[in-house]
Simulated assay, not measured.
Amino acid sequence: MKKKGVQVKTTEKETEGLASETEAVTPEDSAESMDSLRERLALSQSRAEELLKSSREACERVNQLETELRLAVESYRRLMVEQNPEVIPELISGQTVEEINRSLELSRKLVARVKQSLEKEAVLARVPLGQASRQKPDFSSLSAREKIKYAVGGTN
């Protein structure tokens, strides 16, 4: 059985039941029944339109909230970059606050490792303080005049 684009499948038993019901219904009853069905249909369509409108409004609100969230997360990232000048700004990234916090923590650890490595290199490269070397200066490359100037305390 088809009604206005809606397909309803019925079995033979249901068809027999419907046939017996329609035989017992008078024309006045069927007119009242049709009016009742039309009212129910109109109410259903009205409710469907309300739900559709509500759904559209909810989608718009979700889109608005997603935009606001993206802006808030980006603002949080900028704040973390400002508050942590020792880390490289490009290393702080993410789409959520949690992702930004994780990347910030990883950046801090990386900076700490680099600092530690540089400190180790500085310790190894340190020259102990103390007296100057006791080697005699090499005057072999100097001319006689330069040697005399050096001995008298003059400049080259």
Rank of each mutant, 00 (worst) to 15 (best):
Met1Gly: 08
Lys2Ile: 01
Gly5Leu: 04
Gly5Gln: 04
Val6Ala: 05
Gln7Ile: 13
Thr15Ser: 06
Glu16Ala: 08
Gly17Ala: 15
Gly17Gln: 14
Gly17Thr: 07
Ser20Glu: 12
Thr22Val: 12
Thr22His: 12
Glu23Ile: 15
Ser33Glu: 13
Asp35Cys: 09
Leu37Met: 09
Leu37His: 09
Glu39Gln: 07
Arg40Gly: 08
Leu41Tyr: 10
Leu43Phe: 05
Gln45Lys: 15
Leu51Gly: 09
Leu51Glu: 14
Lys53Thr: 10
Glu57Ser: 02
Glu57Leu: 04
Glu57Val: 01
Ala58Trp: 00
Cys59Pro: 03
Glu60Gln: 13
Glu60Phe: 01
Asn63Trp: 05
Glu66His: 07
Thr67Ile: 10
Thr67Gln: 13
Arg70Met: 14
Leu71Ile: 13
Ala72His: 07
Ser75Leu: 12
Ser75Phe: 11
Tyr76Lys: 10
Tyr76Gln: 07
Leu79Ile: 10
Val81Tyr: 06
Gln83Arg: 13
Val87Glu: 09
Ile88Cys: 12
Pro89Gln: 07
Pro89Asp: 08
Pro89His: 06
Ile92Leu: 15
Gly94Glu: 11
Gly94His: 12
Gln95Leu: 05
Gln95Phe: 04
Glu98Lys: 07
Glu105Cys: 10
Glu105Trp: 08
Arg108Phe: 11
Leu110Asp: 01
Lys115Ser: 14
Lys115Leu: 11
Ser117Gln: 13
Leu118Asp: 02
Glu121Ala: 15
Leu124Gly: 06
Ala125Cys: 09
Ala125Gln: 13
Arg126Val: 03
Val127Lys: 09
Leu129Met: 09
Gly130Arg: 10
Gly130Pro: 05
Arg134Thr: 08
Asp138Lys: 08
Ser141Thr: 09
Ala144Cys: 02
Glu146His: 11
Lys147Cys: 11
Lys147Asp: 03
Lys149Arg: 07
Lys149Leu: 01
Tyr150Glu: 13
Tyr150Ala: 15
Thr155Glu: 13
Thr155Ser: 10
